[in-house]
Amino acid sequence: MMNAAFLKMINVIVEEFSHSYLVPSFLTLFMKSSVAGDWVTQHAKDPRVKLVAAKMKKENYRPDALIEILHTAQNAFGHLPLPILHFIGKGLKLPGSRVYSTVTFYHFFSLKSKGEHTCLVCTGTACYVKGAQAILNELEDKLGLKIGEVTKDNKLGVQAARCIGACGLAPAVVLDDEVHGKVLPADVLAMIHEKTNAHEQAGTE
């Protein structure tokens, strides 16, 4: 742990030498600050932060509960903002790289907002054989959204699922948790408009 006086001294040295080619740049090694601490103090009253904190406590801060806690956090926030990952990493005493690598490994977790409304197109085999690609093409043509993209106003996000297990109803899409089966590209667009009143060519993020 670095004490404040020492950090101050380093700051002075860095400042002094900042114009010189011979900056003792390794000193910046001692100037790290904590991202998680500040953010969590600012948001301590946010019920979503409280929820994540409670879940960590319930799981006894066991590192092997990481995925469970990430599920809770994603349910609360809709996605996983970086400060929350710092918060979880600190709580479970897990290295940041380990938390981040787990989050990016599983496609269920998202670092970016998925949009207020989501349109999840199933691209499982049955849906693929029955025209899921046509739906994706239509969404791209009419809304300018590719898989994983969100409209500028964050109203709508398009995602693809590997298989939602509704193969008997192929092709299927999931609009905000409601499964719609045997849909045509035009149906999907109509349903989306109903949900979001999104304008065509809304532009992508």
Binding site: T125, Y128, C163, G165
Partner: peptide
């Protein structure tokens, strides 16, 4: 963890 696309027995 029924991951095969096109399978929904386990579900």
């Amino acid at each position: 963890d029924e991951g095969d696309p096109g399978a929904f027995m386990d579900r």
